[in-house]
Design a protein around this nucleic acid. Structure first.
Length: 453
DNA sequence: GCAACCGCCT
């Protein structure tokens, strides 16, 4: 019987080999599963036990309670908000257990995500009582959640009153609230805030960079230019980051010609162009199909003696995939001490599957499980989507197994993913498996209202 | 404290 709380083991995808016998065999098959981490055991305990027995169960649990273990367990329980808060609250009643500011921040983040603001401020009060905070980080988390919940004005008020909570404002926290607003597309509000308080907090280049980036994010790159002009008029010098923001802004707004001109100006004016600038250009050209220009910028960068980064290779692989040269660069990555990361693997899984080479995509996925980079939520989404391409019944069984595995590993599939797999299984006559998936969906709280089996 | 590579698309 399937449960939400199977112990999570690293590197095991045995089912894939059963279901896809034609998948290539890899060395990872021989790797034995590691025992579960202590935070996984505790998380499973919290998920299975009745709330009234939780205190006793945690008290008698043989774990070596450290602040780190508490934080790790909270991370593992990220998708089970109420349970994780209950867990944390129980721990706060253990008199000898030391909790860290990081653990409080994490709990506050979970409560704020649930929009349980009463719990948020109760935790802040406890943090204060224990003299652990609240810290600027705590306020960054809280304000970000308020903005995400559609309450930017409230977030600004909280920022302006944070010194009453024992956490004085400074330029750093000012820049943080500006950034929080800009990253959630509230750049106009951020800009107003800057204009009102720039004297009081002594706004610096970073403050203006944040606003310029905010305008670039909403594709208002000309506004970004104006803001930066104003910055210079106020005697603040732009930095390389300033230029990189504007460069990306041109590409994002589709102003390719302007982007190229700007890049040339940067070179001409002897900016210390590095890998970040070049990655922006390579990616920008790649997106609009200017493959040769992208390749040229990369080659020139190498000639200049600038070391490539993983991000640069990821951009390049994206650009070159259709030219079949991406595989060559995969090999070059390792020579440049750029170990492929989870994003690199996700690209490969995606592109192999797009090309109809599902087995190769699966092979990359299996190698991830045994390597340094475990599959993330994106990986699972990519691979599950790929299982619908060929309209094969076997592929849907794999999709179902992947769904079970991702939940086991603490990822929360979207409702859409559940429904899609469920429908696929029903259409291919896998009623029994579909029922199993439906039970899982119910446990994850992702059940559609009007669903009937 | 600000800049590069990224998912799905209900």
């Amino acid at each position: 019987m399937l449960t939400l709380c199977n112990p999570i083991t690293r590197n095991s995808h045995p089912f894939l080999r059963h279901l896809l016998p034609h998948a290539l065999t890899t060395a990872s098959a021989a790797t034995p599963p590691l025992p579960p981490e202590p935070e996984t055991t505790i998380a499973n305990l919290v998920l299975t036990i009745d709330s009234q027995n939780l205190t006793l169960a945690l008290k008698t649990h043989p774990a070596q309670w450290t602040p780190e273990l508490v934080t790790k367990t909270l991370k593992r329980l990220w998708n089970h908000g109420p349970k994780s808060l209950q867990f944390f609250k129980t721990l706060t009643h253990f008199p000898t257990l030391a909790l860290s500011a990081a653990a409080f921040d994490h709990a506050i983040n979970i409560a704020a995500r649930l929009r349980d603001y009463r719990a948020v401020w109760a935790l802040v009060a406890q943090m204060k009582a224990r003299r652990l905070g609240p810290t600027p980080k705590t306020f960054a988390i809280i304000t970000e959640r308020y903005v995400a919940a559609g309450k930017p004005d409230k977030a600004v008020k909280i920022f302006l009153a944070m010194h009453h909570q024992g956490c004085p404002q400074d330029l750093n926290s000012f820049n943080t609230i500006l950034d929080v607003l800009c990253k959630s597309r509230r750049v106009e509000k951020a800009y107003s805030l800057l204009k009102v308080f720039r004297g009081r907090f002594r706004a610096d280049t970073i403050s203006y960079n944040i606003i310029a980036n905010g305008f670039c994010l909403v594709k208002q790159t000309p506004r970004a230019s104006e803001v930066l002009k104003e910055m210079v008029e106020r005697g603040l010098d732009p930095t390389l980051i300033t230029y990189n923001i504007l460069l990306k802004g041109f590409f994002r707004a589709g102003l390719i010609k302007e982007a190229w001109e700007f890049f040339l100006q940067m070179k001409k004016r002897k900016c210390e162009i590095g890998v970040i600038t070049c990655t922006t250009v390579v990616h920008g050209f790649g997106v609009v199909g200017e493959v040769k220009k992208a390749q040229k910028v990369f080659d020139e960068m190498i000639e200049m003696g600038v070391l490539p980064s993983v991000a640069m290779y990821n951009a390049l692989i994206q650009v070159l995939w259709k030219m079949d040269r991406a595989r060559e660069y995969m090999c070059r990555m390792k020579d440049d001490e750029c170990e492929p990361n989870v994003q690199t693997y996700n690209l490969l899984v995606r592109y192999y599957c797009d090309d109809g080479e599902i087995e190769k995509g699966v092979e990359v996925f299996e190698n991830m499980g045994s390597g340094n980079y475990l599959p993330n939520l994106d990986t699972y989404n990519i691979l599950i989507s790929a299982m619908f391409v060929r309209k094969k019944s076997d592929d849907l069984l794999v999709a179902g197994k992947l769904l079970i595995e991702m939940v086991d590993r603490g990822f929360l599939p979207r409702k859409f993913t559940f429904n899609r797999v469920l429908n696929g299984l029903l259409l291919t006559g896998n009623q029994g498996f579909a029922k199993e998936i439906l039970r899982l969906q119910s446990k994850c709280g992702r059940l559609p209202h009007q669903f009937r089996l």
